[in-house]
Design a protein around this nucleic acid. Sequence first.
DNA 1: ATGGCCTCCTGTATGC
DNA 2: TGCATACAGGAGGCCA
Length: 276
Amino acid sequence: MPELPEVEVIRRGLEPLVVNRTIQTVLSDGKKLRTPVPLKEMEAVLPGRRITAVNRRAKYLLIELDDNSLLVIHLGMTGRLGLFLSSSEPQQHDHVRWRFDNDRELRFNDVRRFGSIHILAAAAVSRLEKDVIKNTGPEPFDQRFTGSYLQQKAQGRSRPVKSFIMDNCIVAGIGNIYANESLFAAALNPIRPVNTIGRQRWERLATEIRRVLAWAVECGGSTISDFLNAGGSPGYFQMHFKVYGRTGLACPVCSGMIRTIKIGGRSSFYCDRCQK
DNA sequence: ATGGCCTCCTGTATGC
DNA sequence: TGCATACAGGAGGCCA
């Protein structure tokens, strides 16, 4: 589900709800996520700890505690986080709950269980980028993310530009929706081999990626079937999709027909008149 | 080393 | 109606 904009929207919503709350207990339904839930480790680290900040790196949420330990949450395809009264009935697929000192609890709900949860004790936080978020490229809003950076990373490679920008080693946080929308905005055909793209085009792509992502955050993310922010509200960026999911419909620029192909097993939508 | 394919899991839509 | 198949926001592992 969530790509960078959705994770950022959740981060912003969660922050005022959980900062300065103290975690009392951790509960799990015992189901494993993408990786086993580190319940024992969380029980050793979290009780009595106060949350000091909620940050984001790539599509990971970083919940920081007052002893510098770190709770890391990835939402996979269908993960959701929300704050509920502790006395309310957990819902189906509520896999992990963190109970706070104010009769509320944060719940991680994930139908497909492609999400993951990691805990780093204070002494192990330096291992975040090594053990949890491995090989991850710059954030799209980082100064290092430029056209010349992309061009340099593309040197000697022939893969399609769409799989290139969805590769988190190259740039963090871009998934299938925003890859499609950014490539449309930059007028680049998703199958175009990266070694055929010139400097100007890379600059334009970097600019459009930032513009599309920032706009999506402003819209509260994209809700296709089940994305909700931390307060339970949907996003509205899907109203602004120009190509994603619009197979057979008219291109909003030239009125040509939007086509679909599979690239790396993922549906890819584009206008072959506008995108070269 | 690079890039493509498969897999994890559940739910929903579509077609016969 | 029932059943089979395809597909869905991610990403790591495996193979050629």
